[in-house]
Amino acid sequence: MIEISNLTKSFGKHKVLDNITFRVGEGEVLGFLGANGAGKSTTMNIITGYLSSNEGKVLINGINILEEPEKAKKLIGYLPEQPPLYLNMTVSEYLDFVYQLKGIKLNEKAEKGEKSEKQQHIEEICEMCGITGVYKRLIGNLSKGYRQRVGLAQALIGNPEVLILDEPTVGLDPVQIIEIRNLIRELGKKHTVILSSHILSEVSAICEKVIIIHNGRIAAASVTDKLIKEFQDSNRLRLTAEGDAQELVKTVSVIYGVDSVEIDETKTNSSAAEIIIRTSKDVRGPIMSRLVEKNIGVINFGLDTVSLEDIFLKYVGGESDEGSIQERAE
Protein backbone atom coordinates (compact mmCIF):
# COMPACT_ATOMS: atom_id res chain seq x y z
CA MET A 1 0.00 0.00 0.00
CA ILE A 2 2.60 2.53 1.08
CA GLU A 3 6.20 1.92 0.23
CA ILE A 4 8.88 4.26 1.35
CA SER A 5 12.44 3.66 0.34
CA ASN A 6 15.65 5.43 1.25
CA LEU A 7 14.10 8.77 2.10
CA THR A 8 16.69 11.40 2.85
CA LYS A 9 15.91 15.02 3.52
CA SER A 10 18.07 17.91 4.59
CA PHE A 11 17.08 21.42 5.53
CA GLY A 12 20.21 23.32 4.73
CA LYS A 13 23.06 21.49 6.43
CA HIS A 14 20.84 19.79 8.94
CA LYS A 15 19.93 16.27 7.92
CA VAL A 16 16.38 15.66 9.10
CA LEU A 17 15.81 12.27 7.57
CA ASP A 18 18.48 9.75 6.87
CA ASN A 19 17.69 6.76 4.73
CA ILE A 20 14.21 5.93 5.97
CA THR A 21 12.73 2.78 4.52
CA PHE A 22 9.55 1.01 5.49
CA ARG A 23 6.33 -0.26 4.08
CA VAL A 24 2.81 -0.38 5.33
CA GLY A 25 0.44 -3.05 4.10
CA GLU A 26 -3.19 -2.57 3.27
CA GLY A 27 -5.40 -2.15 6.31
CA GLU A 28 -2.49 -1.83 8.68
CA VAL A 29 -2.21 0.77 11.39
CA LEU A 30 1.34 1.94 11.78
CA GLY A 31 2.53 4.01 14.70
CA PHE A 32 5.30 6.47 14.29
CA LEU A 33 7.12 7.19 17.50
CA GLY A 34 9.75 9.74 18.19
CA ALA A 35 10.77 12.66 20.31
CA ASN A 36 10.13 16.19 19.12
CA GLY A 37 12.25 17.00 16.12
CA ALA A 38 12.94 13.35 15.32
CA GLY A 39 11.57 13.70 11.80
CA LYS A 40 8.03 12.37 12.16
CA SER A 41 6.26 15.34 10.61
CA THR A 42 8.82 15.70 7.87
CA THR A 43 8.34 12.08 6.88
CA MET A 44 4.57 12.57 6.79
CA ASN A 45 4.90 15.77 4.78
CA ILE A 46 6.97 13.89 2.25
CA ILE A 47 4.53 10.99 2.05
CA THR A 48 1.67 13.38 1.37
CA GLY A 49 3.60 15.31 -1.25
CA TYR A 50 3.79 18.58 0.66
CA LEU A 51 7.57 18.38 0.77
CA SER A 52 9.83 16.41 -1.45
CA SER A 53 12.76 14.36 -0.38
CA ASN A 54 16.32 14.86 -1.53
CA GLU A 55 16.61 11.17 -2.20
CA GLY A 56 14.40 8.15 -2.13
CA LYS A 57 10.86 7.63 -3.26
CA VAL A 58 7.34 7.24 -1.98
CA LEU A 59 4.87 4.88 -3.59
CA ILE A 60 1.20 4.97 -2.69
CA ASN A 61 -0.50 1.93 -4.12
CA GLY A 62 2.37 1.73 -6.58
CA ILE A 63 1.90 5.34 -7.67
CA ASN A 64 4.90 7.61 -7.24
CA ILE A 65 3.89 10.78 -5.43
CA LEU A 66 6.31 12.88 -7.46
CA GLU A 67 5.48 11.45 -10.86
CA GLU A 68 1.71 11.37 -10.62
CA PRO A 69 0.97 13.66 -7.68
CA GLU A 70 -2.73 14.17 -8.37
CA LYS A 71 -3.41 10.46 -8.67
CA ALA A 72 -1.48 9.63 -5.52
CA LYS A 73 -2.89 12.49 -3.48
CA LYS A 74 -6.41 11.34 -4.26
CA LEU A 75 -5.71 8.25 -2.18
CA ILE A 76 -4.52 10.16 0.86
CA GLY A 77 -6.30 11.96 3.66
CA TYR A 78 -3.90 14.04 5.69
CA LEU A 79 -4.21 15.63 9.08
CA PRO A 80 -1.07 17.75 9.55
CA GLU A 81 0.41 18.60 12.90
CA GLN A 82 -1.50 21.89 12.91
CA PRO A 83 -4.96 21.31 11.44
CA PRO A 84 -5.20 23.37 8.22
CA LEU A 85 -8.35 25.30 9.08
CA TYR A 86 -9.75 28.55 7.76
CA LEU A 87 -10.81 30.31 10.91
CA ASN A 88 -13.30 32.59 9.19
CA MET A 89 -15.36 29.73 7.79
CA THR A 90 -18.02 27.68 9.50
CA VAL A 91 -17.45 23.95 9.87
CA SER A 92 -20.05 23.26 7.21
CA GLU A 93 -18.53 25.72 4.73
CA TYR A 94 -15.09 24.34 5.40
CA LEU A 95 -16.01 20.71 4.88
CA ASP A 96 -17.89 21.69 1.74
CA PHE A 97 -14.78 23.47 0.48
CA VAL A 98 -12.58 20.45 1.18
CA TYR A 99 -15.12 18.25 -0.57
CA GLN A 100 -14.91 20.40 -3.68
CA LEU A 101 -11.17 20.87 -3.44
CA LYS A 102 -10.62 17.13 -3.42
CA GLY A 103 -12.83 16.92 -6.48
CA ILE A 104 -15.09 14.28 -5.05
CA LYS A 105 -18.05 13.45 -7.18
CA LEU A 106 -20.97 12.04 -5.31
CA ASN A 107 -24.52 12.56 -6.33
CA GLU A 108 -25.37 16.04 -5.08
CA LYS A 109 -28.99 16.05 -6.08
CA ALA A 110 -31.32 15.10 -3.31
CA GLU A 111 -34.27 12.82 -3.91
CA LYS A 112 -37.50 14.14 -2.59
CA GLY A 113 -37.49 14.06 1.19
CA GLU A 114 -34.06 12.47 1.26
CA LYS A 115 -30.56 13.75 1.63
CA SER A 116 -28.12 13.74 -1.24
CA GLU A 117 -25.19 11.35 -1.20
CA LYS A 118 -22.85 14.22 -0.58
CA GLN A 119 -24.88 15.43 2.36
CA GLN A 120 -24.97 11.93 3.78
CA HIS A 121 -21.25 11.51 3.37
CA ILE A 122 -20.45 14.74 5.18
CA GLU A 123 -22.96 14.08 7.94
CA GLU A 124 -21.57 10.61 8.47
CA ILE A 125 -18.08 12.03 8.95
CA CYS A 126 -19.33 14.72 11.33
CA GLU A 127 -21.10 12.04 13.33
CA MET A 128 -17.92 9.95 13.52
CA CYS A 129 -15.77 12.86 14.62
CA GLY A 130 -18.38 14.21 16.99
CA ILE A 131 -18.69 17.63 15.41
CA THR A 132 -22.37 17.53 14.48
CA GLY A 133 -23.10 19.91 17.35
CA VAL A 134 -20.75 22.59 16.03
CA TYR A 135 -21.58 22.13 12.36
CA LYS A 136 -22.87 25.67 11.89
CA ARG A 137 -20.30 27.43 14.02
CA LEU A 138 -17.28 29.45 12.98
CA ILE A 139 -14.09 27.44 13.22
CA GLY A 140 -12.35 30.42 14.78
CA ASN A 141 -14.70 30.17 17.75
CA LEU A 142 -14.09 26.50 18.41
CA SER A 143 -11.85 25.10 21.11
CA LYS A 144 -8.62 23.31 20.27
CA GLY A 145 -10.17 19.89 20.72
CA TYR A 146 -12.97 20.64 18.30
CA ARG A 147 -10.56 22.14 15.80
CA GLN A 148 -8.54 18.95 15.95
CA ARG A 149 -11.69 16.96 15.20
CA VAL A 150 -12.62 19.20 12.30
CA GLY A 151 -9.09 18.62 11.00
CA LEU A 152 -9.65 14.90 11.28
CA ALA A 153 -13.02 15.19 9.54
CA GLN A 154 -11.32 17.03 6.71
CA ALA A 155 -8.90 14.14 6.25
CA LEU A 156 -11.76 11.65 6.10
CA ILE A 157 -13.67 13.43 3.36
CA GLY A 158 -13.81 11.39 0.21
CA ASN A 159 -13.03 8.22 2.10
CA PRO A 160 -9.37 8.02 1.12
CA GLU A 161 -7.69 4.63 1.34
CA VAL A 162 -4.73 5.98 3.22
CA LEU A 163 -4.93 8.16 6.30
CA ILE A 164 -1.89 10.05 7.51
CA LEU A 165 -2.50 11.51 10.95
CA ASP A 166 0.12 13.66 12.60
CA GLU A 167 -0.46 13.60 16.35
CA PRO A 168 -4.24 13.28 16.08
CA THR A 169 -4.97 13.36 19.80
CA VAL A 170 -3.00 16.46 20.69
CA GLY A 171 -5.08 18.99 22.59
CA LEU A 172 -7.94 16.66 23.38
CA ASP A 173 -9.21 15.88 26.85
CA PRO A 174 -8.95 12.29 28.17
CA VAL A 175 -12.50 11.36 27.18
CA GLN A 176 -12.03 12.72 23.70
CA ILE A 177 -8.69 10.95 23.39
CA ILE A 178 -10.38 7.64 24.05
CA GLU A 179 -13.11 8.48 21.54
CA ILE A 180 -10.63 9.43 18.85
CA ARG A 181 -8.52 6.35 19.53
CA ASN A 182 -11.55 4.16 19.14
CA LEU A 183 -12.40 6.01 15.96
CA ILE A 184 -8.91 5.48 14.55
CA ARG A 185 -9.01 1.82 15.49
CA GLU A 186 -12.36 1.59 13.71
CA LEU A 187 -10.93 3.40 10.68
CA GLY A 188 -7.95 1.07 10.69
CA LYS A 189 -10.24 -1.79 9.71
CA LYS A 190 -11.00 -0.23 6.34
CA HIS A 191 -8.10 2.16 5.81
CA THR A 192 -4.37 2.07 5.92
CA VAL A 193 -3.35 4.40 8.68
CA ILE A 194 -0.03 5.98 9.60
CA LEU A 195 -0.16 7.86 12.83
CA SER A 196 2.49 9.71 14.70
CA SER A 197 2.65 10.32 18.36
CA HIS A 198 5.04 10.86 21.17
CA ILE A 199 2.64 9.23 23.59
CA LEU A 200 3.68 5.63 23.74
CA SER A 201 0.65 4.16 25.40
CA GLU A 202 -1.38 5.61 22.56
CA VAL A 203 0.65 3.85 19.93
CA SER A 204 0.59 0.56 21.78
CA ALA A 205 -3.17 0.91 22.17
CA ILE A 206 -3.96 1.63 18.53
CA CYS A 207 -1.19 0.36 16.33
CA GLU A 208 -0.27 -3.14 15.32
CA LYS A 209 3.10 -2.04 14.06
CA VAL A 210 5.39 0.58 15.40
CA ILE A 211 8.40 2.41 14.07
CA ILE A 212 10.62 4.31 16.43
CA ILE A 213 12.37 7.14 14.72
CA HIS A 214 15.26 8.96 16.27
CA ASN A 215 17.38 11.73 14.80
CA GLY A 216 16.03 11.01 11.35
CA ARG A 217 16.82 7.32 11.46
CA ILE A 218 14.67 4.31 12.14
CA ALA A 219 15.77 3.07 15.53
CA ALA A 220 13.39 0.15 15.69
CA ALA A 221 10.59 -1.28 13.62
CA SER A 222 8.46 -4.16 14.68
CA VAL A 223 5.05 -5.46 15.56
CA THR A 224 4.06 -3.67 18.75
CA ASP A 225 3.46 -6.77 20.87
CA LYS A 226 6.61 -8.39 19.60
CA LEU A 227 8.63 -5.33 20.43
CA ILE A 228 7.37 -5.36 23.96
CA LYS A 229 7.91 -9.10 24.27
CA GLU A 230 11.46 -8.81 23.03
CA PHE A 231 12.21 -6.58 25.91
CA GLN A 232 10.03 -8.37 28.35
CA ASP A 233 12.25 -10.67 30.29
CA SER A 234 10.21 -13.39 31.93
CA ASN A 235 13.20 -14.16 34.10
CA ARG A 236 13.00 -10.83 35.83
CA LEU A 237 10.76 -10.50 38.83
CA ARG A 238 9.95 -7.49 40.90
CA LEU A 239 9.04 -7.83 44.54
CA THR A 240 7.84 -5.23 46.98
CA ALA A 241 7.61 -6.33 50.57
CA GLU A 242 7.57 -4.97 54.07
CA GLY A 243 10.73 -4.92 56.15
CA ASP A 244 14.37 -4.31 55.65
CA ALA A 245 15.77 -4.58 52.15
CA GLN A 246 18.98 -6.43 53.11
CA GLU A 247 16.94 -8.94 55.05
CA LEU A 248 14.71 -9.49 52.05
CA VAL A 249 17.67 -10.05 49.76
CA LYS A 250 19.07 -12.64 52.13
CA THR A 251 15.77 -14.46 52.32
CA VAL A 252 15.26 -14.63 48.59
CA SER A 253 18.77 -15.25 47.34
CA VAL A 254 19.10 -18.67 48.99
CA ILE A 255 16.24 -20.08 46.95
CA TYR A 256 17.28 -22.53 44.25
CA GLY A 257 16.96 -20.98 40.79
CA VAL A 258 17.56 -17.40 41.83
CA ASP A 259 20.61 -16.03 40.07
CA SER A 260 20.92 -12.60 41.53
CA VAL A 261 18.99 -10.11 43.58
CA GLU A 262 19.36 -6.37 43.53
CA ILE A 263 17.71 -3.60 45.46
CA ASP A 264 15.82 -0.95 43.57
CA GLU A 265 17.08 1.95 45.65
CA THR A 266 14.76 4.48 44.06
CA LYS A 267 11.68 2.71 45.32
CA THR A 268 12.94 1.43 48.62
CA ASN A 269 12.06 3.34 51.76
CA SER A 270 11.94 2.72 55.47
CA SER A 271 8.63 0.86 55.46
CA ALA A 272 8.93 -1.20 52.29
CA ALA A 273 11.69 -2.61 50.13
CA GLU A 274 11.63 -3.27 46.43
CA ILE A 275 13.99 -5.75 44.83
CA ILE A 276 14.59 -7.07 41.35
CA ILE A 277 15.19 -10.79 41.15
CA ARG A 278 16.88 -12.47 38.19
CA THR A 279 16.16 -16.14 37.85
CA SER A 280 17.07 -18.91 35.48
CA LYS A 281 13.61 -20.47 35.66
CA ASP A 282 10.20 -19.52 36.97
CA VAL A 283 10.53 -19.67 40.76
CA ARG A 284 7.63 -17.52 41.72
CA GLY A 285 6.01 -20.36 43.69
CA PRO A 286 9.03 -21.20 45.89
CA ILE A 287 9.71 -17.51 46.54
CA MET A 288 6.15 -16.93 47.59
CA SER A 289 6.03 -19.87 50.00
CA ARG A 290 9.38 -18.86 51.46
CA LEU A 291 8.07 -15.35 52.09
CA VAL A 292 4.96 -16.69 53.75
CA GLU A 293 7.08 -19.02 55.84
CA LYS A 294 9.18 -16.09 57.02
CA ASN A 295 6.03 -14.11 57.69
CA ILE A 296 7.00 -11.26 55.40
CA GLY A 297 4.15 -9.08 54.22
CA VAL A 298 4.13 -8.94 50.41
CA ILE A 299 2.85 -5.76 48.88
CA ASN A 300 3.47 -6.52 45.23
CA PHE A 301 5.03 -9.40 43.36
CA GLY A 302 5.19 -10.18 39.67
CA LEU A 303 7.06 -10.02 36.39
CA ASP A 304 9.10 -6.92 35.90
CA THR A 305 7.00 -5.48 33.06
CA VAL A 306 8.53 -3.38 30.37
CA SER A 307 6.45 -0.64 28.84
CA LEU A 308 6.89 0.83 25.41
CA GLU A 309 8.19 3.81 27.30
CA ASP A 310 11.19 1.86 28.55
CA ILE A 311 11.87 0.53 25.10
CA PHE A 312 11.62 3.97 23.64
CA LEU A 313 14.00 5.40 26.20
CA LYS A 314 16.38 2.55 25.55
CA TYR A 315 16.48 3.35 21.84
CA VAL A 316 16.54 7.06 22.22
CA GLY A 317 19.14 6.63 24.92
CA GLY A 318 17.30 8.69 27.49
CA GLU A 319 18.02 11.82 25.53
CA SER A 320 15.73 14.65 26.29
CA ASP A 321 14.44 17.22 23.82
CA GLU A 322 17.16 19.57 24.93
CA GLY A 323 19.66 17.01 23.75
CA SER A 324 18.34 17.01 20.24
CA ILE A 325 18.10 20.78 20.17
CA GLN A 326 21.68 21.01 21.25
CA GLU A 327 22.66 18.60 18.55
CA ARG A 328 20.93 20.75 16.02
CA ALA A 329 22.73 23.83 17.23
CA GLU A 330 26.00 22.09 16.63
Binding site: Y50, I76, Q82, P84, L101, G103
Partner: peptide
Protein backbone atom coordinates in the same frame (compact mmCIF):
# COMPACT_ATOMS: atom_id res chain seq x y z
CA UNK B 1 0.89 31.66 7.97
CA UNK B 2 -2.20 29.61 8.86
CA UNK B 3 -0.63 26.43 7.46
CA UNK B 4 -3.65 25.92 5.26
CA UNK B 5 -1.27 25.60 2.34
CA UNK B 6 -0.75 22.07 3.65
CA UNK B 7 -4.35 21.34 2.81
CA UNK B 8 -4.18 22.91 -0.63
CA UNK B 9 -0.88 21.39 -1.65
CA UNK B 10 -1.69 17.90 -0.46
CA UNK B 11 -5.07 17.94 -2.19
CA UNK B 12 -5.27 16.34 -5.63
CA UNK B 13 -5.09 19.65 -7.48
CA UNK B 14 -2.33 21.36 -9.39
Amino acid sequence: AQKTDQLLLTAPVK
